[in-house]
Design a protein around this nucleic acid. Structure first.
Length: 424
RNA sequence: AGAGGGAUGGCGGAGUGGUCGAACGCGGCGGUCUUGAAAACCGUUGUAGGGCAACCUACCGGGGGUUCGAAUCCCUCUCCCUCUGCCA
């Protein structure tokens, strides 16, 4: 959530930023907020002065009672009636205005960083790096959804029976490969200074709001209505919400946390031709890295996180590219996002496998995540990134590493974790 | 799930209708003392909104009510603890 004080002082900048993010009617939305903000302050000033008068009267009455001047006290009491009536009306008005202001404010996405390219769709994203050699596949190579069936390592039909579409069952070496990758990613994160976290995977609405999934993406999350809890779409939600309503000491910064969780996404209405096999699932595993940083160092932290993800893909020997997302394709809460895409050799497509973002103070303002600097409290910056999401990595690994004999070669870095160097 | 008890500032813990944003202790910060440190002593130490400022306002788990006035009384919700039951 943007800060009203910022919008107040930077009207033009806000409108320009929103427009870059392809937010419709930026100008009228901003002016509506500015009007509500002015009204809020006026109303509060009036209410405060009425309350100050009431308080003074109450003290006066208290003093008179103590001195036993009953009649004078009763007379003073009579004078409070109109003040009370007025303050009650103003209070209701103020609450209404505040609610309205909050509702409007929450609709505004984060403003993009100046380095974010103009653009509307994924086609306008800018490739900043392409790394690794695309493999030449052997004769008779298969897409991953055929490979997993042939090798009997991931079973969609079984998942379909147990749960439904998009909930695969990992079996044998398929399950072991999953576990190996999770361990590998967590170990790499630990080496990079991240503290390992095992968070809850059901969260309350306050947490959903804190990181920005609510109210914007309500329909994308599974909702356990009996207890009003949401299944997390990413570990970002519980891990970042550790810091909700927190004022950190300087000594606690920077904070680096990493965690593995299953992630649940309803993906309502996003199923099509390109979502076969592991390309899109309702449940998948992911290791997420999260940082809490001082504002002035958050972009250095973003680079650090990008380097970390690069390192993972290189150790997995997978060709990848990095995109700087354009204004129109970025997430609602992000100020700058780099997407990582891994090359899927049989599909001959790039698959998104990580998204690394700086949210600046947008989430922190919702979370009330601050720190003390020279005696003053100030909002911190939050960042997160996938390191990495498993299914598309598995898809690429299976396809890219398939051998002429139909077996799959496991990259060196994973062999100690798997306990085998090939599947099939 | 049933019965009872509880929720106060960074922590512990007073406060049962008026000058309480809240005693006291611990911790933190600043200072005196000291070669330095400790101890001792003195001072200071919550968050948010508004105002150029003096300052005003709100907040004692959340919400609502009674009252001129609520941390204190009433209602309600949430959470925690103890005992009983159940359970991985």
């Amino acid at each position: 959530m943007l800060q009203t004080t910022f919008i107040r002082d930077n009207r033009e900048l806000t409108i320009a930023g929103l427009t870059k993010k392809r937010f419709a009617n930026a100008e009228s939305a901003v002016d509506l907020i500015l009007n509500l903000d002015r009204l809020r302050r006026e109303t509060q000033q009036e209410l405060d002065s009425i309350l100050a008068q009431s308080n003074a009267k109450a003290k006066e009455i208290g003093g008179l009672m103590k001195q036993g001047k009953k009649e004078e006290a009763e007379a003073a009491k009579a004078e409070t009636a109109s003040l009370k009536e007025r303050s009650k009306a103003l209070d209701e008005q103020l609450k209404k205005i505040e609610t309205e202001l909050q509702d409007e404010l929450v609709k505004l996405p984060n403003l993009p960083h100046e380095s974010v390219p103009e653009g509307r769709t994924a086609d306008d994203n800018v490739t900043v790096l392409e790394q690794g050699k695309k493999p030449v596949l052997p004769e008779g190579h298969l897409p991953h959804w055929e490979l997993i069936k042939k090798l009997d390592i991931i079973d969609f039909e079984l998942g379909n029976k147990i749960s439904g579409a998009g909930f695969p069952v990992y079996k044998g070496k398929g399950a072991r490969l999953q576990r190996a990758m999770i361990s590998f990613f967590l170990d790499e994160a630990a080496k990079a200074g991240y503290t390992e976290i095992q968070p809850p995977i059901l969260v309350n609405a306050d947490s959903g709001f804190g990181t920005g999934q609510l109210p914007d993406k309500e329909g994308q999350m599974y909702h356990a209505t009996a207890d009003d809890l949401y299944l997390i779409p990413t570990a970002e939600v519980p891990i970042t919400n550790i810091y909700r309503d927190v004022i950190l000491q300087e000594s606690e910064l920077p904070a680096r946390n990493a965690g593995h969780t299953p992630c649940f996404r309803r993906e309502a209405g996003s199923w099509g031709a390109h979502v076969r096999g592991l390309n899109r699932l309702h449940q998948f595993d992911k290791v997420e890295i999260v940082q809490i940083r001082r504002p002035e160092e958050s972009y250095a932290a973003l680079d650090e996180m990008v380097d970390h993800v690069k390192g993972l893909l290189e150790k997995l020997e997978l060709p990848y590219r990095i995109l700087r997302l354009c204004g129109g394709d970025m997430g609602f809460t992000s100020a700058l996002t780099f997407d990582f895409e891994v090359w899927s050799a049989a599909q001959e497509r790039w698959l998104e496998c990580s998204s690394v973002s700086n949210f600046e103070s947008y989430q922190a303002n919702r979370l009330k995540l601050r720190y003390k600097v020279e005696g003053k409290t100030q909002l911190l910056h939050t960042l997160n990134g996938s390191a990495l999401a498993l299914p598309r990595i598995v898809a690429a690994l299976l396809e890219n590493n398939q051998q002429a004999d139909g077996s799959i070669r496991i990259p060196q870095a994973l062999v100690p974790y798997c306990g085998f160097d090939r599947i099939g």
